[in-house]
Amino acid sequence: MSRRDERLHVRVNPIACTAHGLCAELLPERVRLDDWGYPIVDDRPLEPELVALAKRAAAACPTLALLLERGTRPVERATGSVPPPRVRARAAR
């Protein structure tokens, strides 16, 4: 496998995560659940044979909270993530 894949790791977006638990089922090598069902992610780099599983786990997450990242950049960025709503009153000058 190429050396690039060795720097892939998984990370969870804690705000998006609602503890469905699919990630721990599909990728127990990197994800285990705490006492409340939320994932504790081991962010060590993925071995090449785990990459496909990790991709599947990220695709299976119902809230797209599990992310696959290389270094600090995400491999597939979910572009639809929404920033906070902006309802601003203009400041009086």
Binding site: P14, I15, C17, T18, A19, D35, W36, Y38
Partner: peptide
């Protein structure tokens, strides 16, 4: 109240 580990963990 955004993240499970904080909400449930701190409460516990």
């Amino acid at each position: 109240g955004q993240c499970g580990p904080c909400v449930f963990g701190l409460a516990a």
